[in-house]
């Protein structure tokens, strides 16, 4: 039997508690900052305890924005982020389900070619094709639009491979039975494959929602119109303003909290699906 090792267990708890503290501290300090009125920052009175400005700050950030630095309210940005995250998650799942279905359940010329074309996207993150992709989107007239924010990001090799793996585990007898009962390919897809992949879809959705919400470089490139800013990239404009003469730290930190709240809430609320999705997509 492994020794119970009280000292070791104690050390383990201590390490974990320190770890949790290190994870929480930056967010706690941001939260504290988001509850102090802007003037408190000038006098350096911000410590470890919340101040009286919580409601005022969040109201100002969400609905008025900062008039001094010309920063728009972040309420609409939250909405834009939500739309983009949903569009990316749903779009990626939809087109990946279809392509995985085609690759698994049909034999046709260029099947393997199609597979490799999809595979190559793994090696082409936005960062390595940044200018030309921007040009394509500009030429298609998709700058400053929801379609420009979402569509170029919804090709997904990872999701296609994941669904391919799921489909490969589904017994052939089911397909045979469906065919004997007269089901065509689309009927089979909708009535048998979809229900059987439900938990995989849900797990992937959690991961992709976070992925979409946290996009930074892409929205930065394709939006110049403030009404299409997403909150994660919009925050940078505000931080830049804060570095200037008139710091608006209270608004920056309020926006920071607002920007991380939705994805963090999703992870905590759907922890089991999140872990499943994370582990599956990296297989």
């Amino acid at each position: 039997m492994v020794e119970s090792g009280r000292k070791l267990t104690f050390a383990a708890h201590a390490a974990l508690i320190l770890g949790v503290a290190a994870m929480v501290l930056p967010v706690w300090l941001a939260f504290v900052a988001s509850t102090h009125p802007g003037t408190d920052f000038l006098t350096g009175r911000i410590g470890f305890l919340p101040g009286p400005g919580l409601i005022a700050n969040y109201k100002e950030a969400l609905f008025t924005g900062s008039s001094v630095s010309g920063f728009p309210p972040v309420g609409p940005m939250l909405w834009n982020s939500f739309v983009m995250a949903m569009a990316i998650a749903i779009g990626k799942i939809a087109i990946s389900l279809l392509s995985a279905f085609a690759i698994c359940y049909f034999r046709f010329p260029f099947r393997v070619t199609a597979f490799w074309l999809i595979f190559i996207t793994l090696m082409l993150p936005v960062e390595v094709r940044i200018l030309p992709t921007f040009e394509v989107v500009a030429n298609l007239g998709m700058l400053n639009s929801y379609s420009g924010l979402a569509i170029p990001l919804i090709a997904s090799a990872t999701a296609t491979f994941l669904f391919r793996q799921v489909f490969m585990t589904i017994p052939d007898e089911l397909t045979e039975a469906a065919r004997i009962d007269g089901a065509g390919p689309l009927r089979f897809f909708w009535s048998i494959l979809m229900p059987l992949s439900r938990t995989n879809i849900a797990a992937l959705f959690v991961i992709l929602f976070i992925y979409g919400w946290n996009q930074y470089l892409w929205p930065l490139l394709v939006t110049t119109d403030q009404s299409y800013y997403t909150i994660v990239m919009g925050i940078q404009r505000l931080a830049a303003a804060a570095a200037e003469a008139d710091p608006v730290w209270h608004l920056v930190m309020t926006t920071t909290i607002l920007a991380m709240l939705p994805p963090v809430a999703v992870v905590i609320a759907m922890q089991r699906l999140f872990v499943k999705g994370l582990v599956e997509t990296e297989k």
Binding site: M23, N214, Y216, T256, M260, V264
Partner: peptide
């Protein structure tokens, strides 16, 4: 321990910057 995964890199950076 796992929730910081959901924080965008840019947002994490602002936390430490502050």
């Amino acid at each position: 321990l796992i929730w910081p995964y959901a924080v965008a890199p840019a947002v994490a950076a602002i936390l430490w910057w502050f």
